[in-house]
């Protein structure tokens, strides 16, 4: 394979206090591609995703073991700048969570935090980001309107615009379409394909069609045999995982027999 690897996850285990949520996850995530994480509820997909930008650090008493290399740097190494890591690895959440402010303020938030103060510069970034999130035409006359007054689908694309405004390298998406209607879902999928030209995307999804339609690589997660923590049981090119799965459990899952 000639593609570069963005993340290399190496024997990662994760604990919420005494509770083990991930065991020995080893996974490579290729650059500028879409990697889908699939698997039944509670197998640790969200937990794994939140390890990639260390958002789990905000939960008290959590602990990770193993290594997560981002461009060959271990993000769990002591002295890692977590704030900078999160700027490089952005995140879109399951429920759209725009700030209760205007559309403009939402998108300008990240650049402001990073120190951009010039109004014209901010306007440029906001427009480019909203265009990048395929939202500009719908909101260009209402940039001052309260973000919460838009539909959920628009709010989710606003959250995507807000993330790309800080020019991250990776965008993590945790079931970004689960609160959206089918048409908004398709729009977000189109948008993901568009974004994958410039960004590495990792998406958790419950929707098998979505994974097979929209992703290049698919990783199947599952509870370990003692059913106490999750791990990756199969990774491969999406087409291959869906048509010729190597693992019986993957086959059962993608054909809808359980999960």
């Amino acid at each position: 394979m000639s593609t570069m690897l963005k993340f290399q996850v190496d024997h990662l285990s994760f604990f919420y206090g005494a509770k083990r949520a991930l065991t020995d996850v080893t996974l490579a995530i290729p650059e500028r591609q879409i990697t889908a994480l699939i698997g039944p509820s509670g197998c640790g997909k969200s937990t794994f995703l939140r390890c990639l930008n260390r958002m789990n650090d905000t939960i008290h008493g959590t602990r990770a073991e193993g290594r997560v290399l981002l461009d060959d740097q271990d993000i769990y190494a002591p002295g890692t700048d977590v704030v900078d890591l999160r700027r490089r690895v952005g995140m879109v959440f399951q429920r759209p969570n725009p700030f209760p402010q205007s559309v403009f303020e939402n998108v300008a938030f990240g650049p402001r935090v990073l120190g951009t103060t010039s109004r014209s510069e901010l306007e440029g970034i906001v427009e480019a980001s909203l265009r990048g999130a395929d939202l500009w035409d719908e909101v260009k006359d209402g940039l001052k309107k309260d973000a919460l007054s838009f539909s959920l689908g628009q709010q989710q694309r606003l959250c995507i615009a807000r993330v790309i405004a800080v020019k991250p390298e990776v965008i993590l998406m945790d079931e970004p379409c689960s609160a959206l209607d089918p048409i908004s879902t398709l729009r977000v999928e189109d948008l993901m394909r568009e974004l994958a030209r410039n960004y590495t995307i990792v998406i958790v999804t419950h929707n098998m069609q979505q994974a097979s339609r929209a992703s290049d690589t698919t990783a199947m997660m599952m509870l370990t045999d003692d059913r106490k923590s999750g791990t990756v049981i199969e990774v491969g090119e999406t087409k291959q995982v869906f048509t010729k799965p190597q693992d019986k459990r993957t086959e059962g899952y993608v054909t809808g027999r359980y999960g």
């Binding site: 958002m55 905000t58 700027r87 952005g90 995140m91 959440f93 700030f99 209760p100 990240g110 935090v113």
Partner: peptide, 10 residues
């Protein structure tokens, strides 16, 4: 809201 902000590198 906090999560969104922290995840953006604030």
């Amino acid at each position: 809201y906090r999560d969104a902000s922290l995840a953006m590198g604030a």
